[in-house]
Simulated assay, not measured.
Amino acid sequence: MIGADADCFGPGGFNGPALAWAAYDSALCVSLCLGLLTLFREAVTRSSRLSAELAADSYGVYILHVPLVVAMQYCLTDRGLFPAAAWVTTSVFALSAAFLLAAALRRLPGFRRVL
């Protein structure tokens, strides 16, 4: 069986399979976060004006991206897109909008200190 109904997901609740899945999922997330941070720290050593601007906008993007992603997913509901197409569309538009909005908000008086 494939997908969310697969046996490896477990039924949830307070049992062994649910504990194993939660431990695996947590370990995977922490490992990916640490691994990607280390990879980019070691591999990407040069800086540009664009990368400095994107880095300055990153906290604003962190705050703004969730509502933008939810709004984009809501707009794409029942459009007949394949899940991968909906994911790509949401990723491109919501991420672009989050960076543009964060950059615009940082230029307003008072927001630079917060964002």
Rank of each mutant, 00 (worst) to 15 (best):
M1A: 14
I2F: 11
P11Q: 08
G12Y: 07
F14K: 15
G16D: 09
G16P: 05
P17L: 01
A18C: 03
L19F: 12
A22L: 06
S26M: 07
A27T: 14
C29S: 14
V30G: 09
C33F: 12
L34Q: 08
L36Q: 12
L37M: 13
T38W: 14
L39P: 04
E42W: 15
V44L: 15
T45Y: 03
R46G: 09
A52Y: 03
A56E: 04
Y59S: 05
L64N: 01
H65D: 00
P67S: 01
M72Y: 10
M72W: 10
M72H: 07
Q73E: 07
Y74H: 15
L76D: 04
T77C: 04
T77H: 13
T77K: 15
R79I: 01
L81Y: 13
L81R: 09
P83C: 08
A85L: 06
W87A: 15
T89Y: 07
T90W: 02
F93T: 11
L95F: 14
S96V: 11
S96Q: 09
A97N: 03
A98W: 09
A98P: 05
L100E: 02
L101W: 01
A102R: 05
A104P: 03
R106Q: 01
R107D: 02
L108N: 03
P109N: 06
P109C: 02
G110R: 00
G110I: 00
F111M: 08
